[in-house]
């Protein structure tokens, strides 16, 4: 089986991987999905590997500006992609959190926290494109991110806290 190189930019850092067979050490199998690569090879465990069918949104990352479910994307298909995970939101030098992350803390917008990275990434992508979304737009954007602890009401407040800044 052919071994192909791919290059990903994750949280501003470039990575080159070999992809192809599943029996060569250090080579990413063609069947590996992005969330596995991020978690197991780059130790970026913020994105959660939960439903594995794109339904829950816990594995959401921002890819080329759009929020996507990283469990439904083959790593081998990500050649040249620019990916941001929850770990990439804070300021790498100062460690200062993204305002949206801070807002989630301020508003206690989570309970168990399992789905929170996915929710934050989807909300971040929304705010990047639309800095002042309405509650309806926030709800629609987050309709693919599920939370079993019913943190939704506080999530609205947290996202709105950022959305209302500078308004």
């Amino acid at each position: 089986m052919e071994i192909k190189p791919i290059t990903l930019t994750v949280n501003g850092k470039k990575y080159t991987f070999m992809t192809g067979p599943d029996d060569v050490e250090g080579v990413i199998p063609n069947s590996e999905v992005l969330v596995k690569t991020l978690r197991n090879r780059l130790s970026l465990t913020g994105a959660k590997d939960a439903c594995e069918e794109g339904a829950c949104g816990c594995c959401t990352v921002i890819m080329n500006g759009e929020p996507v479910t990283s469990c439904m994307i083959l790593t081998v298909d990500c050649d040249g992609a620019d990916i941001t995970t929850i770990e990439g939101l804070e300021n790498p030098k100062t460690g200062e959190l993204d305002p949206l992350q801070q807002a989630f803390i301020d508003k206690y917008a989570f309970q168990c926290g399992y789905c929170t990275p996915g929710i934050i990434m989807t909300a971040r992508a929304l705010l990047n494109k639309n800095p002042h979304p309405t509650r309806e737009e926030i709800g629609e954007a987050l309709s693919g991110n599920f939370c079993r602890c019913i943190s939704h009401y506080h999530v609205f407040e947290a996202v709105e806290q950022v959305a209302n800044q500078g308004r």
Binding site: G54, G57, E66, P67, T69, M72, T122, S143, G144, N145
Partner: peptide, 9 residues
């Protein structure tokens, strides 16, 4: 169709 996350893919 499905959710915005799926429509993005």
């Amino acid at each position: 169709v499905a959710s915005p996350l799926i429509r993005n893919t």
